[in-house]
């Protein structure tokens, strides 16, 4: 092995420590979710599945999981559809005011969530709308959209605009071009966008907390359980399941994105 220059070794060591600290809290939850102790503390005392077993018969938790699934799937599909429109306009059209329009669509990425949450809450309550999963979906759609746009913009940038022109040139209609060229070329990005936004929605707390009314999503359910110290190990178990689910979904999205990149690349 080659001996690295010392400044490079210091940098490498720093990066390794940095990444370790990033992961430490995230990996801690699963570790304690298998620990046979009612409070998470060191040393670890023994291995158990009982905190996971405790989740099995929990009707309220199942209801929350179902709510999260419904909200996540609908928000993911709708934000991806809207994201396709936005990403297409941003990458394929030139028009005055594009910067402002894109900025507005991307704004939820940088706004404090509490601001979005209270504004939506006030408007929905003033309009006499009952807080429900529907209102959560409306909120999640807003914050998922920037992520969809980001994923899909790189999807659109990944293929040559003259592909679509070539299709039109060969006699295909605009709709036929969408079906035969644009969507197949964009498919990996579309699936990636659905997976990423589903994950965002699954993990989102603030908007769901303000807008869900009597139908909690999983994070809102977890929040409620935090009041009871005795329930903490069960919460850790549930949290570990959520983390695992997010990881699987995101890895799938990443692998898809890479495969698409390889597929679209021109090999001479």
């Amino acid at each position: 092995m080659k001996f690295l220059p010392s400044s490079r070794r210091v940098l490498s060591a720093y990066v390794i420590i940095y990444v370790a600290i990033l992961y430490f809290p995230v990996l801690l939850l699963p570790v304690f979710s298998f620990n046979d102790s009612a409070t998470p503390k060191l040393p670890l005392v023994g291995f158990t599945f009982k905190w996971y077993e405790g989740l099995a018969g929990n009707e309220a938790m199942h209801g929350a999981a179902w709510n999260s699934l419904v909200v996540g799937i609908i928000a993911a599909f709708l934000s991806t559809i809207l994201g396709i429109c936005a990403a297409r306009a941003m990458t394929r059209h030139r028009f005055r005011g594009k910067g402002a329009a894109s900025g507005l669509i991307m704004a939820p990425l940088i706004l404090p969530e509490i601001i979005i949450a209270i504004s939506l809450l006030v408007v929905m309550l003033s309009m006499g709308l009952q807080l429900s999963l529907f209102t959560v979906i409306l909120g999640h759609l807003l914050i998922c959209l920037p992520y969809s746009v980001t994923v899909l913009v790189s999807g659109f940038e990944g293929f040559d605009p003259s592909m679509e022109e070539a299709s039109l040139d060969l006699g295909e209609s605009a709709f036929g071009t969408l079906r035969r060229v644009t969507l197949p070329m964009l498919a990996p990005s579309i699936i990636s966008s659905i997976l990423v936004t589903f994950t965002i929605s699954l993990d989102e707390f603030i908007l769901a907390f303000f807008l869900s009314g009597s139908e909690p999503t999983l994070p809102v359910y977890i929040w409620g359980q935090l009041r009871f110290a005795a329930k903490l190990p069960n919460v850790l178990a549930l949290g570990s399941i959520l983390i695992a689910a997010s990881l699987v979904l995101l890895t799938a999205a990443e692998l898809l994105r890479r495969r698409a990149e390889r597929k679209m690349a021109i090999r001479p």
Binding site: L82, C85, A89, M90, H93, A101, S102, A107, P108, L145
Partner: peptide, 20 residues
């Protein structure tokens, strides 16, 4: 060109205007 651009971006833009 500008019209097509605005038309394409209008669904998400409208959503952001109405809900943000």
């Amino acid at each position: 060109e500008a019209g097509k651009g605005w038309l394409t971006i209008s669904p998400p833009l409208l959503y952001a205007v109405l809900l943000l």
